[in-house]
Nucleic acid binder design. Structure first.
Lengths: 193, 193
DNA sequence: TTCGGCATGTAACTTGTTACATGATTTG
DNA sequence: CAAATCATGTAACAAGTTACATGCCGAA
């Protein structure tokens, strides 16, 4: 009983806990609502789903009535699956290993021009502005949809986190631009006393 | 000439651009100053260094004078390496794919208790407080060391980014705790009109 | 003499992505 | 009729971690 499915397994379980889903639906749902902090490819989803069934954490029901395209395979979480999920939820989240390419490029800034760095930061600011707008739109969307069959307040919390992060990133980038610009002037002074 | 080394290659080049280094020194340096936004394992470092030499981006000089322990292999960047680095620095940084486990757990919050979530958030707040303190310490450190042989201002910028992010994360977690606590009360009201 | 740090290296494994194959149905 | 979308799936690859092997030196 090796533990080879990483976190994808729990993502599937968490989504199936809401409602029975197909692999395709899981992918679409991830793309729409989780993409800013989580993503999975089909190459992960389908094999993981099969393992879930093997481990008794979900059951599959092949609906031969092919409504759209090929016949769908619906996965439903079992009691064992619910227990597995809640056990995982109780465990303290691991510390994330982050890899910010932009910070790498900034920290190697000596090896390029000021303009290149300022360009990257400008692009970064725009990207974060877009993300903030997206997150705000998403929050309005779920606030607008009142008569929903399930509670979205936890989803809203993750969007709120996005807003915090992207706002902080944008603020940093603006500050960084100022510092880099000022630094250029200082260098010039030093070289021409 | 396949492109199989990902970003590790450029990290090595960026560090070698400062001074000639051994694999071991690269690892230690990464652990000390880059660990909050980048990390590499020996399993990546040594093979990548070899490839750098194969591609003519660095040269190795085995100093047979074994100062400490086993004889070291010093790697020095070549002009071709410097060009490769500056070309990479000019390219727009890729959009990061983030995976925040804590957000996953929060978004699946329905399947556990309020106490579990509040506990995770408390731990998260403490972790971020520690990180903010670390980053501030790091900034003071490089500000204190005045007569340094090379400019640290770009490193300081990355630390500043850390402070922004961790502060934002902490602020979010505090807000999230309040919202989750309030939500509990509201649920109670709804169930007992 | 034992332990920790210096120092290099690799094999096995895990994790995840990409590109492809298949094919029905819906929409323009 | 062509293209997009629904829908499942896999093989090959890429990337990265872990655990281990080796061995010297200095300090406790």
């Amino acid at each position: 009983m090796r533990e080879n499915t990483g976190k994808s397994k729990y993502v599937m379980l968490g989504m199936l806990a809401r409602m029975p889903l197909t692999g395709y639906m899981i992918k679409k749902w991830l793309e729409n609502e989780y993409s800013h902090f989580w993503q999975e490819s089909y190459g992960q989803i389908y094999p993981t789903l099969k393992k879930l069934v093997e481990e008794g954490l979900a059951v599959s029901s092949e609906s031969s009535e092919r409504r759209n395209g090929r016949g769908q395979i619906l996965y439903t979480i079992t009691d064992a699956g619910k227990k597995e999920l809640s056990d995982w939820l109780s465990k303290e989240p691991e510390i994330e290993k982050l890899r910010y390419e932009i910070l790498l490029k900034i920290s190697f800034g000596d090896n390029t021009t000021k303009d290149v760095l300022l360009g990257h930061l400008d692009e970064f600011i725009q990207r974060n502005e877009k993300l903030i707008k997206d997150m705000n739109g998403y929050i309005e969307e779920i606030e607008g949809a009142s008569g929903l069959d399930f509670d979205c307040s936890y989803s809203k919390l993750t969007a709120l986190c996005g807003i915090h992060i992207y706002t902080a990133m944008k603020a940093w980038a603006i500050e960084a631009k100022d510092i880099i610009a000022a630094k250029g002037e200082k260098d010039h002074e030093t070289k021409n006393p």
